[in-house]
Design a protein around this nucleic acid. Structure first.
Length: 872
RNA sequence: GGGCGCUUAGCUCAGUUGGUUCAGAGCAUUUGGUUUACACCCAAAGGGUCGGGGGUUCGAAUCCCUCAGCGCCCACCA
């Protein structure tokens, strides 16, 4: 099989992915081995791959591939999320484009469309994950709206209801007028917005010319005003106690009430109270039994309580109403004002606080184990640790979870009503069961099916995804099955900090509630992918590169490396395509290293040269030292450092030093011992690169030697540390410096790289690896010499050892003495600082002995160096 | 408004309990090179008062205080 000169990832990436699938490399079933499990954060079923997914899933793939090689039964469970709001919005939009309005459809008709859409576009993202090499067990692919998932969700709902955690409440919730549903507190994002503060005067009822001024950012809500509130301690308004005011436009007479809640220093110290449209006003409203007047329809327009503004949008009304107030002379002034406006995480629509009947999950009790496991027992680790604080605040101040959504796409709430009273409902896993229960509850065996109706709402998407690590193994419906017992708890979870509360915290809660155990041990929180200017990548900005295009350009391996090169856990990643290019260059480097070895002709007659023997010994030591470092980095989830370490091992130690030393001279072959060993070393190297770059390593794995069809590098054994000698490593480092010294000498004197030269070590008898030095610097002779007389410019030093190169130096090309003078000055200053330190009695008395000895050694070494320099 | 975190070379970041000759890496830049693995290359070089100021200490990038800038989370005084 001839190898192409150019590294061309396109020529083999698809081939190997298919190979992995055909040979079931990613397949996992419970067995005797230890499991290593990751459940994917399910992307939205209608989503397309973006940079965040690439980052996130590359990390998961690296972890899972390495675990597989380390002998774990690695299981990566893929799947998608039905994403109620996002998907329903997309379907509604699509229907709208086809001229169909959601309102004209029945629930079943709509769902039919939605499923059609899901079947058509859904899962595209999973195919895209295959492009970047994700080694998921695809046979396990799950969808959060699958029947089995639904069954789990319903079972959980019923269980929690029976335990008293789920209740129905008439409460103020966050209303998304665009999606026309409520959203949870976590789904509201507050953004600073420039607005206006309007000062409006209200006439005092029964007093001719007396009025009171309020300040508001939302003048349209005065239509729902049912009181004016002032602080009882506010002397300015004392005389108004017990009086009433007339709300402008509606001319409603409402009381003036006194409550400490009002801050006398804000605005006019006078608050208009709209209990139906503000959470704080609602509290006041309830406290003083005020009227609740809802002025909005579900789409954010005004309803019949909005008088002549009925049907108009809330923001249009804001302008109109100000005009009217101005006309009647009750607008005092308008000030610029910056305030926080809640927007919907999904639709960006401005959230409208609204009172309505919703289902809630009481969290106070449920959250308890989730506090301990992360913050006290460390049964679960957040990586990086800094997220503990964020997490702590949320779990300790948790609010009840609004789990109902006024949508059709999702798990329908398993509540069935049979009457009009507050408690006229039953909770059941099916309609049939509901009828039975209702008959019992009402004591009416003749209750008809038609008298029973299911709650119209569906559950929050996260109410199904919080079960994910359990439900993908069917651990809710079938709690003692082999799979859940084997795979749960899972090991690592990799996701973004943006869903720490939405998803991660809730999975922890459900894990303890439904399994009595942590759902995972470690949570690796990635950063956001940002562009060069630090902006979050988004569709709106159009600053996100097309993921698949990147793969086309740089290859999947290149993109993976590019993403991993600069992404510490929890740190944002400023994405730069250059990084992918660096990744591609690295792949090319590996490719060519292989080509070089592959081109060598074996010469069985040839004896191994001392240089080759030494070079292989060096690399073996370096490899073992490095594998230990890499393993440690992995243990601490420092994946980019693990990669960089492997990168340098490959590029520098393997290519630049080992291969350059082994390289036979033109026309000669290579001895068998070296050949066999370098091929086996290459194999070890490919193994540690494999998790990062699965495609090229698989390709070269099969090219390096003939393999059986199912012998994938992905199933090979991760190299184990087999000991190393630091003396060898130190000698190696010294050797490199000597070689650099010779190369610099050539460069400084403008000598050809193959110009014959000799090298004399003046001080040290032990020259490290002279054969390698000689080979890589084209030296004739290299030996120790006590020569006393020499030309200063022909000298270089490594530590305190002097090396001399006899050669008649052209005066013009002499290195200028400035460099040496600078060096001398630096050393002399250094010497002074050491002497000062050593003559300081305090230092001698309080510093530990090893530090003092060290300083003494420094002193000696520095003196020696100065001596050498001065001799020049 | 509260809390947390960050600031080290042009860029992205390492830098363990304060002490190895500790100020580092990769990329970028500059210089030189290559008819025989790779210009997706090789060899080498330059580049930082560790955000500013103060303190503790024999000794501070590392600990404390303070100021400045940036980021994140939470809170929702209309």
């Amino acid at each position: 099989m001839s190898i192409s000169e150019k590294y061309n990832p396109k020529s083999f990436e698809d081939k190997w992915y298919k190979y992995w699938l055909d040979n079931k490399i990613f397949k996992s079933t419970p067995d005797k081995r230890k499991p290593y499990t990751i459940v994917i954060p399910p992307p939205n079923v209608t989503g397309v791959l973006h940079m965040g997914h690439m980052l996130n899933n590359t990390i998961q793939d690296i972890l899972i591939r390495r675990a597989r090689m380390r002998g774990y039964n690695a299981c990566w469970v893929p799947g998608t999320d039905h994403a109620s709001i996002a998907t329903e919005a997309k379907v509604v939009e699509k229907l709208k484009n086809d001229g169909i309005s959601k309102n004209s459809l029945t629930r079943d008709q709509f769902l039919e469309y939605a499923w059609k859409w899901t079947d058509e576009y859904g899962g595209v993202i999973l195919d895209q994950l295959k492009k970047i090499g994700c080694s998921c067990d695809w046979d396990r692919t799950k969808f959060t709206l699958d029947p089995l998932m639904s069954k789990s969700v319903v079972k959980v709902f019923i269980e929690l209801f029976k335990k008293g955690y789920i209740y129905r409440g008439y409460r103020m919730v966050n209303w998304d007028p665009k999606a026309q549903t409520t959203v949870s507190d976590e789904e509201v994002i507050y953004r600073e917005q420039k607005g206006k503060l309007f000062f409006i005067s209200y006439m005092i009822d029964g007093e001719k010319n007396e009025k009171i001024t309020v300040a508001t950012t939302r003048p349209e809500t005065i239509l729902g005003d049912t009181a004016i509130c002032i602080n009882p301690k506010d002397k300015r308004y004392k005389h108004l106690k017990g009086k009433e005011v007339i709300v402008p436009i509606v001319n409603r007479v409402v009381p003036i009430i006194m409550d400490e809640y009002v801050d006398p220093d804000f605005g006019t110290g006078c608050l208009k109270v709209t209990p139906s449209h503000d959470p704080n006003d609602k509290i006041i409203g309830e406290k003083y039994s005020l009227d609740f007047i809802d002025i909005f329809s579900s789409d954010g327009t005004l309803n019949q309580n909005g008088l002549h503004f009925k049907g108009k949008d809330r923001f249009e009304v804001r302008k109109l109403i100000i005009n009217e107030i101005k006309l009647i002379g009750q607008l005092v002034k308008i000030e610029d004002y910056i305030n926080n406006v809640g927007t919907s995480e999904r639709t960006n629509a401005i959230i409208e606080p609204r009172i309505s009947e919703q289902w809630f999950l009481s969290m106070k009790e449920l959250v308890k184990p989730a506090i301990n496991s992360v913050l006290k027992t460390n049964e679960i680790n957040l990586i990086p640790k800094k997220f503990n604080n964020t997490y702590r605040y949320w779990v300790e101040n948790i609010t009840d979870w609004n789990i109902s959504r006024q949508l059709w796409w999702g798990h329908r709430i398993p509540v069935y009503y049979y009457g009009e009273n507050k408690d006229d409902f039953v909770v059941a896993e099916s309609f049939k069961k509901a009828v039975e229960l209702a008959k019992v509850k009402t004591n009416n065996p003749n209750l008809k099916d038609s008298e029973i109706r299911q709650d119209e709402d569906v559950l929050d998407t996260w109410f199904s995804s919080w079960l994910w690590p359990i439900s993908v193994f069917d651990g809710i419906n079938n709690p003692d099955n082999d799979e859940i017992n084997y795979y749960y708890p899972t090991q690592d979870l990799v996701t973004g900090p943006d869903i720490l509360f939405f998803w991660v915290a809730r999975m922890i809660i459900s894990g303890y509630e439904f399994r009595g155990k942590n759902p995972f041990s470690n949570v690796y929180l990635t950063g956001l992918v940002r562009d060069q200017r630090g902006r979050k990548m988004s569709k709106q900005l159009g600053n996100s590169p097309d993921a698949l295009n990147l793969i086309q350009t740089y290859g999947a391996d290149g993109v993976r490396v590019g993403l991993m090169l600069s992404s510490a856990a929890g740190n944002d990643l400023l994405f730069n395509e250059n990084l992918c290019n660096q990744g591609k260059n690295f792949a090319n480097k590996i490719w060519n290293a292989f080509r070089l070895i592959d081109s060598w002709k074996l010469d069985v007659e040839l004896k191994q040269s001392p240089a080759s023997k030494d070079a292989l010994e060096i690399f073996n030591n370096k490899f073992n030292k490095t594998i230990e470092i890499i393993d440690r980095y992995f243990k601490n989830y420092r994946i980019s450092e693990a990669l960089m370490t492997a990168y340098k091992l490959t590029w520098d130690d393997f290519c630049s030093w080992l291969l350059e030393t082994l390289k036979p001279s033109y026309g000669s072959g290579i001895d068998k011992k070296s050949y066999d060993e370098v091929k086996s070393l290459l194999e070890k190297l490919l193994k540690i690169i494999h998790p990062f770059m699965p495609f090229i390593t698989e390709e070269l794995w099969h090219r390096n030697i003939k393999r059986k069809s199912h012998d994938s590098i992905g199933l090979s054994e991760w190299p184990k540390y087999q000991g190393h000698d630091d003396l060898v490593i130190n000698k190696y480092e010294k050797m490199k410096q000597i070689i650099s010294g010779v190369r610099n000498f050539r460069k400084d004197n403008k000598l050809k790289s193959k110009q014959p030269l000799n090298l004399f070590s003046l001080d040290s008898i032990n020259i490290p690896y002279p054969q390698i030095i000689s080979k890589l610097t084209y030296l004739d002779k290299i030996k120790h010499s006590k020569k006393q007389k020499f030309n200063q410019s022909n000298l270089f030093t490594v530590d305190v050892d002097r090396y001399y190169i006899p050669f008649k130096i052209d005066v013009n090309s002499k290195i200028d003495s400035k460099k040496y003078n600078e060096q001398l000055v630096h050393l002399e200053n250094f010497l002074i600082s050491i002497e000062k330190k050593l003559s300081n009695a305090n230092f001698i008395n309080s510093a530990p002995k090893n530090i003092i000895d060290l300083e003494k050694k420094k002193l000696k070494d520095t003196k020696d160096k100065i001596e050498i320099l001065k001799n020049k």
